[in-house]
Amino acid sequence: MSSLPPLTRETIWAILTDTIDDATLNRLLWHYLGYRQNLTDGNWDTGAVVPEWRDEYPEPPDFIASRPATVKLTRSIPAAHKQLLKEDLGFAGYKVSELVPRKTRRATAANWLLSQLHAQEPTAPEAEV
């Protein structure tokens, strides 16, 4: 797996503005969910994946193509973090004409990743931003 962009607010904005491609977005989600791919045989190591994800998705899902996986991602965002895109980034959402499944799934992914960033912040260098 090639290197991933760092988990920063700039990366979250890049997801929202579609400057990070869907494949990279999926890889970011997989990484923070704990999925690791063995580069030798291509198999997925799910040892670090929490059981509720590992049991349902023994291989990481394509979050852009899978509504059920995105719904599960939405439900896994802590209630206190549901509005982070608006509260932390000032993201006002997409225009009605832009509301297509791909964009809304990317926004869900961005919110979940921002939630992960907030969970890390007490020890992360990003906390100073």
Rank of each mutant, 00 (worst) to 15 (best):
A124C: 12
G93N: 11
I64Q: 05
W13P: 03
T24P: 05
L28K: 02
E59D: 08
A107R: 08
T24N: 01
P60Q: 01
S66H: 00
A119Q: 13
L99M: 11
D62Q: 02
L117Y: 06
R105K: 11
H31G: 03
R105Q: 04
T11I: 00
P58M: 09
P101N: 04
G34Y: 04
K95H: 06
A124I: 09
T74K: 10
N38C: 10
L4S: 04
A79P: 05
Q37V: 07
P61C: 08
E59A: 08
T70Q: 02
L73T: 06
S97V: 14
Y57Q: 05
L7I: 00
V96G: 01
S66N: 05
A69L: 01
P6T: 07
F91S: 06
T40N: 10
P58R: 08
T17W: 12
V49Y: 04
L25M: 14
P68N: 09
A92Q: 14
N111A: 14
S66L: 07
R9C: 04
A110S: 10
V50F: 12
A48H: 02
L39E: 13
V100R: 12
A124V: 11
E128L: 14
A23I: 11
K103D: 03
R105Y: 02
K103E: 06
S66A: 10
I15H: 01
I15D: 03
I15E: 04
D21A: 00
K95R: 12
V49L: 09
L25H: 05
S2H: 09
E128Y: 14
N111S: 11
A107I: 09
